[in-house]
Measured scan of single mutants.
Amino acid sequence: MAAAAAAGAGPEMVRGQVFDVGPRYTNLSYIGEGAYGMVCSAYDNVNKVRVAIKKISPFEHQTYCQRTLREIKILLRFRHENIIGINDIIRAPTIEQMKDVYIVQDLMETDLYKLLKTQHLSNDHICYFLYQILRGLKYIHSANVLHRDLKPSNLLLNTTCDLKICDFGLARVADPDHDHTGFLTEYVATRWYRAPEIMLNSKGYTKSIDIWSVGCILAEMLSNRPIFPGKHYLDQLNHILGILGSPSQEDLNCIINLKARNYLLSLPHKNKVPWNRLFPNADSKALDLLDKMLTFNPHKRIEVEQALAHPYLEQYYDPSDEPIAEAPFKFDMELDDLPKEKLKELIFEETARFQPGYRS
């Protein structure tokens, strides 16, 4: 834990890192770190609560700039109880001085990944967590956004079992017609939660990839272990087919990539493993919904509104309290091709509203 900075004593240090967030945020305490930044909790002297502050230093890398800009653009436009918001952003007053960006968010005690390492969940908890994931996802999908990296560590939890989806750095506007060349190379989302079509096709992607990830998360809540822990690309596919069985001819016809289709045709026939054999203690309604989410063919996979209306979630289902976005989200430009200098300018502009004396 960093010592509390005395008023006016300059930035606090946390594990050798400068955290320049005073005077409003003090009493910093280390939480963890990701690929390009550290997260601390801090005391907000204005709202009198502890908050989470993520320090991001992305400006050396085009990919990190892209992810940072995506996350900020999306989260500043989203407003939903099951999606983490941005409360404040701290950065230098000029673009030349801006080396880091500090993002202030609600402090959540833990995440689903940490929880599943230590606790076996009751059916009631599984049901409530799944409902909140789908409630947040309904809003995301209504904005025409794909999260693309749903996994237990991106689901934040607090002691009252509130759940918030975080990390929109890989999110995209849904565009089933656009052929994202190089899709697989830039697709760094965790393999275990990846839909089979991501490994088999490169053309376009749809909201059904997020539903697949939610199915993987439900299976993990039922058993405290990942359902498809593939060691590499082909191993991942083999794990999936080992449980779902061989795809039907109709399902194979959806695979545009001939090499991928021929690979699947070359494999020995596998039978589907019954879900109640894998999860003998699970609620039968939970397994019915799991089956509809972990469907090989993305066109037959359940959609988020149908999933919310499934009998497993009937005690929570309330369409009048499951809000959607006001308007579909649009990125003005494809960020993939922009140089990091341009992305830095866009991050600077996007964060201006939090600067003292800002006038829109």
Rank of each mutant, 00 (worst) to 15 (best):
A2W: 15
A3Q: 13
G8Y: 09
G8W: 13
A9F: 15
P11R: 04
P11C: 03
E12H: 09
M13F: 15
M13C: 09
V14T: 13
V14E: 06
R15G: 04
V18A: 11
F19D: 04
F19S: 01
D20Y: 00
D20R: 14
P23L: 09
T26V: 08
N27M: 12
N27E: 13
Y30H: 13
Y30F: 01
G32E: 10
G32C: 00
E33N: 14
E33V: 06
G34Y: 07
Y36R: 07
G37R: 00
M38R: 10
V39Q: 03
C40L: 11
D44I: 10
D44S: 12
D44W: 14
N45S: 08
V46M: 11
N47H: 07
K48H: 07
K48V: 11
K55W: 04
K55T: 11
K55A: 07
I56G: 06
I56W: 01
P58K: 15
F59S: 03
F59K: 12
E60D: 00
H61Q: 02
Y64I: 04
C65I: 07
Q66A: 06
R70H: 02
K73P: 02
K73V: 06
K73N: 00
K73D: 04
K73L: 01
I74K: 05
L75P: 14
R77F: 11
R79G: 04
H80I: 11
E81N: 14
E81H: 09
E81M: 11
I83K: 10
G85D: 03
N87F: 12
N87T: 15
D88Q: 11
I90S: 15
P93D: 12
P93N: 13
P93S: 05
T94N: 03
Q97W: 14
M98C: 11
M98F: 08
K99I: 13
Q105G: 08
D106C: 15
L107C: 13
L107R: 13
E109V: 02
L112E: 07
L112G: 11
K114Q: 03
L115V: 09
L115K: 09
L115Y: 14
H120I: 14
D124A: 01
H125T: 05
I126F: 01
Y128N: 01
Y128D: 06
Y128Q: 06
F129C: 13
L130W: 07
L134A: 05
L134Y: 06
G136T: 11
L137F: 12
K138C: 11
A143N: 12
N144H: 10
N144E: 04
V145C: 14
R148I: 02
S153V: 04
L157R: 04
T160D: 12
T160A: 06
D162I: 14
D162W: 15
I165R: 04
I165F: 00
C166F: 01
D167N: 00
P176R: 03
P176V: 06
H178K: 05
H178L: 00
G182Y: 06
F183P: 05
T185V: 04
T185Q: 02
E186N: 08
Y187W: 05
V188S: 03
A189Q: 05
T190S: 00
R191G: 03
W192C: 00
W192V: 02
Y193N: 00
R194V: 03
A195W: 04
P196I: 04
P196D: 02
K203D: 05
K203A: 04
G204Y: 09
G204A: 08
G204T: 12
Y205D: 02
K207Y: 04
D210Y: 00
W212A: 03
S213P: 05
V214K: 02
V214G: 04
C216H: 02
I217K: 03
E220R: 02
E220L: 02
S223Y: 00
R225F: 13
I227E: 05
I227S: 03
P229R: 05
G230Q: 12
G230N: 12
H232E: 04
H232P: 02
Y233V: 03
D235H: 07
Q236N: 06
Q236M: 05
Q236P: 15
H239V: 12
L241M: 00
I243D: 07
L244P: 02
S246Y: 15
P247M: 09
P247S: 05
P247T: 01
Q249F: 11
E250R: 10
E250L: 14
L252P: 01
N253F: 12
I255P: 13
I256F: 01
K259M: 00
A260V: 08
A260F: 06
L264R: 07
L265I: 13
S266Y: 13
L267R: 13
L267E: 10
K272Q: 06
K272R: 04
V273W: 14
W275I: 06
W275E: 05
W275C: 00
R277Q: 10
L278W: 12
L278Y: 11
F279N: 13
N281Q: 08
D283R: 09
S284C: 10
S284L: 06
A286H: 10
L287Q: 01
D288T: 14
L289M: 03
L289P: 15
D291L: 02
K292L: 11
M293T: 11
M293Q: 03
N297Y: 00
P298L: 05
H299A: 12
H299W: 10
R301H: 02
I302Q: 02
V304C: 11
E305R: 10
Q306H: 02
A307I: 15
L308N: 10
H310A: 12
Q315N: 10
Q315F: 14
Y316H: 13
Y317C: 02
D318A: 02
S320Y: 01
D321Q: 12
D321M: 12
P323G: 13
F329R: 11
D332E: 02
L335G: 05
D337C: 15
P339F: 13
K340G: 01
K340F: 07
L343S: 09
L343E: 04
L346H: 09
I347L: 07
F348K: 08
A352S: 03
R353K: 03
Q355M: 06
P356R: 13
P356N: 14
G357N: 15
Y358K: 05
R359Y: 14
S360T: 07
